[in-house]
């Protein structure tokens, strides 16, 4: 089965009002090429679910988003995503702010086809008051404890960036941390993967490497080859985040018409012109992967 798709054909399968989960973690391994394609499209009223990085701010800036369900929205060195901060402070965005672990539990519940996950997390905190739809349950056992029934977070689609994939939907995700891409995939009706490298088959005699295959191919609906497609976020072990670019992007949030300036400078063309606009292939390939 050949699951290869183009950025345009993936964007064409998405609909207004969908709930879309985005893999990665802050400015790390985000499917940015696909996000850029959405930014170029007419899609609107999206609910975005993420450990958010620049994709959340950009989608908000472009008016694509109705609601964000998030554990955080951060560019790491720039602690708060600038366009996310802007729309939050304007009061125009519907949000579900979660404890980072509650997002894990909500996605996992969706993947397990149960309506909620029982947990202590969130009890006593603003998570309860800011999300008045959240309900508690009482343990049916002798302890009688009251627990949050964290609702399942079902996704219409999950967008994920991987290191290597084949046309059957087998994927390999390198790097120190897989984050929660597997849970996003399992919570989603459709999964679209962008990959640094598309190969005929990832099959290998190196069984150890297959620990980097986070999800079964039956979960994957589409695979798009997007070399450097995570820029300006880190893609292990290809290139690090482009903090100079992210700082320049962040600065536009403080300018009148800043988003339009950013859009026309970087996003108006295709991916090839995007990469040229940020300094070219060699510049991106040489971005160092940060240590902490």
């Amino acid at each position: 089965m050949n699951k290869e798709m183009s950025l345009k054909s993936v964007a064409g399968e998405l609909r207004d009002g969908m709930t879309i989960g985005v893999g990665g973690w802050g400015p790390r391994r985000k499917p940015m090429a696909l996000i850029r394609e959405i930014l170029r499209s007419d899609l609107k009223d999206l609910t975005i679910v993420a450990y958010g990085g620049p994709e959340v701010g950009m989608l908000c800036a472009a008016g694509k988003v109705r609601k964000v369900i998030y554990g955080f929205v951060s560019l790491d060195v720039i602690p708060i995503e600038p366009y996310f901060r802007k729309v939050r402070q304007e009061g125009t965005l519907d949000v579900c702010e979660l404890d980072e672990g509650l997002l894990v539990l909500g996605l996992r519940a969706a993947g397990q086809n149960v309506p909620f996950a029982a947990t202590h997390v969130g009890l006593g905190s603003a998570v309860m008051t800011n999300n008045p739809e959240f309900k508690t349950v009482v343990s049916p056992y002798d302890d009688g404890q009251e627990l949050l029934a964290m609702p399942a977070i079902k996704l219409d689609a999950a967008l994920i960036h991987v290191s290597r994939a084949d046309r059957s939907g087998n994927t390999l995700t390198f790097g120190p941390d897989p984050y929660f891409d597997d849970l996003f995939a399992r919570a989603a009706a459709k999964v679209y993967v962008t990959t640094e490298e598309l190969v005929d088959s990832i099959a290998s005699e190196n069984a150890e490497e297959m620990k980097s295959n986070l999800i079964e191919p039956y979960l994957v609906n589409g695979v798009v080859e997007t070399p450097l497609g995570a820029h300006p976020t880190t893609s292990h072990y290809g290139y690090g985040w482009d903090m100079d670019h992210l700082k320049a992007y962040a600065a536009t949030a403080g300018e009148e018409g800043g988003w339009q300036i950013y859009f026309h400078k970087h996003l108006a063309g295709d991916e090839a012109s995007y990469i040229e606009s940020v300094g070219g292939v060699d510049h991106v390939r040489n971005l160092p992967i940060p240590t902490f």
Binding site: I80, Q89, V95, E97, G101, L123, S125, A126
Partner: peptide, 18 residues
Amino acid sequence: RKPKVQMLGVRGFPGNSV
């Protein structure tokens, strides 16, 4: 719904604290 200053979000604090 319309914070004066958006900061980091609750991040892991609710879960950590309990």
